[in-house]
Amino acid sequence: MNAILKTTSFFSTSEHLADMAVAALLDEVNLTPKPALVDQRGCGAHDDLTLELMERSARSLAPMFKAMAEAAEHHGQVCQALREDIGQLGRQGEQRMLQVTQGVNTHRGAIWSIGLVVTATALRVFNKQPFFIKNICTTASEIALIEDRFVPQQKTSHGEKVRQQFGVNGAKQQAQLGFPMITQHGLPQLRHSRDQGGTESEARLNALISMMAQLTDTCVIHRAGLDGLNKMQLGAQQVLALGGCSTAQGKQRLEELERDLLAIRASAGGAADLLATLLFLDEVEQYN
């Protein structure tokens, strides 16, 4: 990703934030090898996704992210009106995404998580407040805690069905809590792996795996039940215990984990969305 937030107007800052959000999505999907997820090798556990489709989907969301940043400038603070404006923008962005993908859900979860942190970052930039990762996540959680009164009645999502059936937290609760998977697991692992001298790709993969090891991923539960979730979490924990992607043993265990997940058609889509969100936040913080 390549962007600078020190610009002459907020309008151009909103464009930079949108570019950074799209770049984070592109970086996430191109990161290879991700276990059972779409990457440069293929479609992973998915029959309806390709790398090219994911990239087109990501680029289609740029106007939405830009509009969310502009909404933050317009309102200037966390409030009901801002929450409902970005909710409407998110629904419009999702419809645009579905047009581009011909109905395939590629980035619905990322629209929620990255949309919130883009809005939170824009608020903090506009108000000349620090935009370190934890600050942004706190502001994002304040926005997420406000209920959108204009959410239309629609078909219950797979994630919501899983949450209701198994009593687990999903993407909404993760945001309302301030993205603890990112701040307590993904981010510390990303920084630790960099400090250990691994490549940037290895550091990002380890960050993904650290979140897979802890996240109650509703995408995995929907596809493979709680047994599938346990298999993912235990396998990811073992990869990290063996040194992560930077060691031969860790890489071997990661390959085994991928085979296990492919066999049950389980895809850690929730963790992938959080990785893209982390990559956006990491890039923003570097320009703080």
Rank of each mutant, 00 (worst) to 15 (best):
104 V>E: 10
105 N>V: 10
106 T>Q: 12
107 H>C: 08
108 R>C: 09
109 G>A: 12
110 A>Y: 03
110 A>P: 01
111 I>V: 15
111 I>C: 13
111 I>E: 11
112 W>I: 14
113 S>Q: 11
113 S>L: 09
113 S>T: 13
114 I>K: 00
114 I>R: 00
116 L>A: 07
116 L>F: 03
116 L>R: 01
117 V>K: 00
117 V>G: 01
117 V>M: 00
118 V>E: 05
119 T>H: 02
120 A>S: 08
120 A>I: 00
120 A>G: 05
121 T>W: 00
121 T>F: 03
121 T>I: 07
122 A>I: 06
123 L>H: 04
124 R>W: 07
125 V>Q: 06
125 V>E: 10
126 F>T: 01
126 F>L: 01
127 N>C: 10
128 K>R: 10
129 Q>W: 04
129 Q>V: 01
130 P>W: 00
131 F>R: 05
131 F>T: 05
132 F>M: 05
133 I>L: 14
134 K>R: 05
135 N>E: 04
135 N>R: 03
136 I>Y: 04
138 T>H: 03
138 T>S: 10
138 T>C: 09
138 T>E: 03
139 T>V: 01
139 T>F: 01
140 A>N: 08
141 S>N: 02
141 S>W: 02
141 S>E: 00
142 E>R: 09
144 A>L: 06
145 L>C: 15
145 L>F: 03
145 L>G: 13
147 E>I: 14
148 D>P: 10
149 R>P: 15
149 R>V: 15
150 F>H: 10
151 V>L: 14
151 V>E: 06
152 P>F: 00
152 P>D: 00
153 Q>N: 06
153 Q>S: 15
154 Q>T: 02
156 T>Q: 14
156 T>M: 14
157 S>Y: 12
158 H>C: 09
159 G>E: 10
160 E>D: 13
160 E>V: 10
161 K>Y: 05
161 K>Q: 09
161 K>W: 05
162 V>W: 09
163 R>C: 15
163 R>K: 15
163 R>Y: 13
164 Q>T: 04
164 Q>N: 13
166 F>W: 15
166 F>Y: 12
166 F>R: 13
168 V>R: 03
168 V>K: 13
168 V>H: 04
169 N>G: 08
